[in-house]
């Protein structure tokens, strides 16, 4: 088997990644793998949590959904660069989550197996989220009512949804 990248040297590095439930296999030669930064585990002394986390960021090659980002790009609020985050495994401020959203997505999936919050929502600043969650819940009820051919109830729920949606503005 030849390296998928240079298609010249034999592939000696085989990586398997799970992404969105799909298995992605990558076969590279050592030279190309090193260039891609695939050797996250070659130095045992780097086996610390920040280093592991840091290596989870950015190792998204071969995944078509993830565009390659410039490692020097910085968060407009705190000035942390993607490089800093990769080195420390820590984000700089709340805005980093928006600034590096794309790079974070696969990391969160790998750490948590998930990337969407379903837990507590703060009453303050979270009003909109609560309203949205309520609407989602109502829509489910609406479907159930329609499925049960309970059209009177469905109409009622539909009106409630309309009223609730107004709150979102």
């Amino acid at each position: 088997m030849y390296c998928e990248e240079c298609k010249q040297r034999p592939a000696t590095v085989h990586l398997t990644q799970m992404y969105n439930g799909k298995k992605v296999e990558i076969h590279l030669c050592e030279a190309c793998a090193a260039q891609k930064g695939a050797f996250m585990f070659d130095v045992a002394s780097n086996f610390s949590i920040p280093n592991l986390l840091g290596s989870l960021f950015g190792s998204n090659f071969n995944l078509p959904e993830v565009q390659t980002q410039l490692p020097g790009r910085v968060c407009p609020n705190c000035g942390m660069s993607l490089n800093d985050i990769m080195n420390t495994g820590r984000l700089g401020c709340s805005e980093c989550y928006t600034a590096f959203e794309k790079e974070l997505e696969p990391t969160l999936r790998r750490v948590h197996g998930n990337s969407e919050h379903v837990g507590k929502v703060p009453a303050r600043g979270g009003e909109k989220v609560m309203v949205k969650k309520k609407i989602e819940h109502l829509k489910q009820q609406l479907q159930q009512a329609v499925a049960a051919e309970n059209y009177e109830k469905a109409a009622e729920i539909r009106d409630t949804i309309k009223d609730t949606e107004k709150k979102l503005g």
Partner: peptide
């Protein structure tokens, strides 16, 4: 509090984000 609709409570380390 730093909170994002999709990510939940935002934390310094991504291993704590969400709840």
């Amino acid at each position: 509090f730093a909170f994002d609709e999709r990510r939940g409570y935002l934390t310094s380390c991504p291993t704590n984000v969400g709840t």
